[in-house]
Design a protein around this nucleic acid. Structure first.
Lengths: 234, 234
DNA sequence: GGACAACGGTGTACGCCGTACACCTGTCAG
DNA sequence: CTGACAGGTGTACGGCGTACACCGTTGTCC
């Protein structure tokens, strides 16, 4: 109804990308088709190709838009707090666009060079590590670790647990997989007193994140101690 | 030429899966189609549907086959060594079938319960942690961490680095992304004396893996110390 | 031996997909 | 007025997953 007497708002790459992102948010990326985007915009499919080379470039544009939503690094001197905040911001964005992490990973794996927003993201993240006293090599490692943490968080392995929807856990399964059964039964008696969903993904994410951050911190201290105990300080 | 006078080897779910895995290994999962599998088997596409419900079930079967290739946990008492060996075995398998990690992740994210081989894999992994003295909750966390590490390793972010194929790094890029530039120039002057590919993915993987394992070990010790310093020992 | 069902492979057809290509139309520069 | 050009259209092609009706072979039971 929005496009009634007006002939139509003029298409543009931005409008195409926005429609594509909205559609992917709503129905998943596999339900995304040029035809549906076009329909959503009240236009014939081929019209999109005046603004986007092909579906691949469209996906790149969508990734760029999403990555651009991640907050820039906050100020301060504590590298760990900055990285933590940034990664959590990235996570919030990726939860808003659940299709994005898979698409980012696919494209990162196969593309000659990452999309500009990804480059910007990486550059500023590297800057935070360097400013935090990390050597180049350690920064390099850290980026790899953070990258896999940022992108590939595989939640929902145990979604069927929790007291609400679990039927009496079928006993022959418990027999075949005793360790899984024990774990499902015994989770989270202490660490939050929330009896709720049995497996808080946010808690898991932050647990893993802190694990990594603490490990990196220890390595950085260690490297610093070795360097200052040998010869110079640079 | 193999199927000459013989009418044809009789199809079976195993043969279908094997053909599908081979095809995916060769051309990537996006080049995999029921029609191509059928052609490969010298059969009409619809014939496959006598052995597989649909493409989704076929992908599940492929995942199961691949996960089944992962070595069972080795013996010994050092949980860290066992986990390390197992994860590296998983990694070898996933490198053999580069399409697999993505497919596993997609399906793990959306499926009611994981495929049987994945269940078996998880169960024995949980067993290793439990035998290694991990509490149930800590095992739970550890599984999440291992899961994301096993599946989502995002290699190749810097594939264009390395002295071999890098043209003179375009200077206006270095200006826009100074940190990236510094990192690309400065990587790996020490940690292997290999001047080679500039970014050894295996090294990165093991670095992250050990980071996580060390962190988990520290947490386990810590939990044990707290428990024995409070009341009982169970 | 003959009826019959089940199994496994076939052929045709439908609706979806991405997109090449030729076409039209409105706008604006010269 | 003319012509170029940007942006939207229509048609068409090849590929996809798979529903559905079909058929030959094979084994079972009377």
């Amino acid at each position: 109804m929005t496009t009634r007497e007006r002939p139509r708002a003029p298409l543009s790459k931005e409008r195409v990308l926005a429609a594509a992102v909205a559609l992917a948010d709503a129905g998943g990326v596999e339900a995304l088709s040029m035809r549906k985007i076009a329909h959503e915009l009240g236009v014939v499919p081929m019209a999109l190709y005046k603004h986007v080379q092909n579906k691949d470039e469209l996906l790149d544009g969508m990734v760029d838009a999403v990555v651009g939503e991640i907050d820039p690094p906050g100020g301060g001197t504590d590298w760990k707090a900055i990285v933590r905040g940034r990664v959590l911001s990235a996570r919030r964005v990726l939860l808003r666009h659940p299709w994005a992490s898979r698409v980012i990973e696919e494209r990162t794996r196969a593309r000659p060079d990452p999309t500009p927003a990804v480059m910007t993201y990486m550059d500023s993240m590297i800057g935070v590590f360097r400013a935090g006293g990390f050597s180049i090599d350690l920064t390099h490692h850290a980026m790899h670790v953070m990258g896999s943490r940022l992108l590939g968080f595989s939640q929902e392995l145990f979604e069927d647990s929790g007291p609400a929807d679990a039927p009496p856990p079928p006993p022959e399964l418990a027999e075949r997989f005793p360790h899984i059964a024990e774990l499902v039964m015994g989770i989270s008696h202490d660490h939050g007193s929330v009896v709720g969903p049995g497996c808080d993904d946010q808690v898991e994410f932050e647990f893993a994140l802190d694990l990594v951050l603490d490990g990196l911190d220890r390595l950085r201290d260690q490297a610093g101690r070795v360097a200052s105990s040998s010869s110079s300080r640079t």
